[in-house]
Design a protein around this nucleic acid. Structure first.
Lengths: 361, 361
DNA sequence: TTGAAAGCGCTAACAT
DNA sequence: ATGTTAGCGCTTTCAA
């Protein structure tokens, strides 16, 4: 139980704790031989610094806190991975909290993290209320917002993508592929990701001279179940959209399942575009068109901003790092070529049924 | 910067820090009015305890460390989620480290975590060397191993599944489905998960009176690329297996991609069984047969063991919690019924081509 | 019931 | 180059 401490080493060597401390940290002058003796003694006596004591003394715990709504979401786990890498490189440790999409847990996590004296905070807040940001302005530690950027965060540090532009881009992409009847499953308008992707979508359609149809634009809560439910609702409409832009991956998965359950084909009957629907397995079908946020980099940059501020970068807060997402096109193209093939095989007549043929070799 | 501390409150109220401390912690007698005055003052003066100072004094940081090889792997992110839940419930905070499958990073993480005086440690080690465990025996804090249980861990705490039995079970399942030519892509034999799944596979085949064919049993490193490469190798063999048991999800994804690239069908040409190939999206095809570890529960139980030990449960180390995995059957069955349907439709003749029909409603 | 004082293990002036 | 000392903010004996 009783770990060996500086004092023990000091006694053994007939030195003072300060000398031993200096020998280990490298700060302050220490005689060559003394340093070696200390290093030697430390090696023999499995000494481990007590970082808690050091933190108290230095008033710096060298911990960075991160709060995400769902650590199980591959977007966030990648963010965490990136943040971790940056932390390791700079000698920080990451304290991870999962808010489970609950404001209450989020606040609780924050409180704990602050009590533990984290040096900085990375926050993917689920908070809808702009007032919710106020406390952070008053915090004496650097706070970086990612993903959902609450209103009122103007002068705070932010790492994100341009969600408005991204939504606009993928919407235009769908139009360019020939889809003019485009609907959307949006996220909560109270979250910036939800709102900006929604306005981006609208803007793109208008820019293309298409007026969005209200009944085709529904808002969910970013969870799979809501995507499924809303899509079902859409499918009951007398007129269906031919393509959907869906505000995040989980809702897209839900929607796709609903479409399939209805016996419809993607993208044959309805094409799907989404966000962060990356498929690391290469096995998800259909490959849907997707705007992908550079998740690891978001985490990495967020942590680096914190480290920079901590090491004296006192540019005023309000650094906005806007990263470029990538667009993965999905396999509409692939789909078309299969259909074309089948149609050709059936003698040029549009086939009433689509056949996917597996030939045993 | 200068946070308000106990002393500030004490001064303001004309009390001593000890009284204020007692009022807040509830330990020790404090007058009713005094307590209220303190609580009031604290509320007004956004006071936050300094958990670092408290930890130093109490010699207990109330942090639990967890090290996993890849936080991005949904198995581990679920483990972390479970551990987090347990931590929150018991007033601990989780410090998460990602070893990136590297022994070096793992050791580094461990060192840091120990310096930070974590109260306990959850460890999904990548270490192959049995000597690697030795240091943990000497640690004065509780350590729980999950996933890979290193040799020599006999008397240590462990939360896991019975990998040998699980592998045997899924192998027998494949045999029961009529596959007798079964191969395996195993994991590293130096890791318990790799080794036990391998021996379980062998045992099952032998129990079924099948002698495993050496050239169909290859070992990879649990990464997707290795699954792909090994499967390619297998496909070049003059005789191919009809089914594969693959030691983890990533290698299975790689293998499936290789099989598809070769223009073969799953499970038509080769059936696949794996571990932790859960598909939360419902979109992965083929749905492969899979043994699924209860990841969240593993994390939860591991954290709870630590908490229990910390609160005085001094049963000797060596608690082995063996959890029951679930078996998701995949869609061979589904596949068979489709084929059956088509065969019936074609007048009872075995169809030379299998057709999957999508009918627009 | 409350206060004074010591000390958790470390670092950093300051003095030598 | 090394030692002495004070103190980070808290909790907890011990005494009043």
């Amino acid at each position: 139980m009783n770990a060996v401490k500086l004092e023990d080493i000091a006694k053994k060597l007939g030195l003072s704790t300060s000398t031993v401390s200096r020998a280990l940290s490298g700060n302050g002058r220490v005689g060559e031989k003394t340093r070696h003796r200390v290093l030697e003694a430390v090696r023999e006596s499995d000494y481990t610094v007590n970082a808690v004591a050091r933190s108290l003394r230095l008033r710096d715990a060298k911990n960075i806190g991160i709060v995400v709504p769902d650590i199980t979401n591959s977007f966030f786990s990648s963010v965490i991975k990136g943040a971790q890498d940056a932390c390791r490189q700079h000698g920080y440790t990451l304290m991870v909290c999962n808010s489970d999409e609950s404001e209450e847990f989020e606040e609780e996590s924050l409180r704990t993290l602050l009590e533990k004296q984290v040096s900085g905070l990375i926050l993917a807040t689920v908070s809808a209320r702009p007032e919710g940001v106020v406390p952070y302005r008053r915090l004496s530690i650097p706070v970086v917002f990612i993903d959902n950027i609450p209103e009122g965060a103007e002068a705070l540090d932010v790492v994100s993508i341009d969600n408005h532009r991204a939504a606009s881009r993928i919407t235009k992409e769908m139009v360019a592929r020939g889809y003019r009847d485009v609907g959307m499953i949006a996220g909560p308008k109270s979250q910036s990701t939800g709102l900006l992707r929604y306005t981006g979508f609208l803007e793109a359609l208008r820019a293309e001279g298409i007026s969005p149809r209200e009944e085709w634009v529904l808002a969910g809560d970013f969870k799979m179940e809501s995507g499924r439910a809303l899509m079902r609702k859409l499918l009951k409409l007398p007129e269906r959209p031919r393509a959907m832009v869906i505000s995040n991956n989980y809702m897209a998965y839900g929607a796709i399942n609903a479409i399939r359950d209805a016996g419809l084909d993607i993208p044959g009957d309805i094409a799907i575009a989404s966000f962060d629907a990356m498929d690391s397995t290469g096995l998800i079908t259909p490959l849907i068109a997707s705007i992908n946020q550079p998740a690891e980099e978001i985490g990495l940059r967020a942590a680096e901003i914190i480290v920079a501020r901590l090491s004296g970068d006192s540019r005023e807060s309000g650094t906005e790092v806007i990263l470029e997402p990538t667009l993965s096109p999905g396999d509409s193209a692939c789909y078309n070529s299969v259909v074309e093939h089948v149609v050709r095989a059936s003698g040029g007549q549009p086939a009433a049924i689509y056949a996917v043929v597996f030939m045993p070799i």
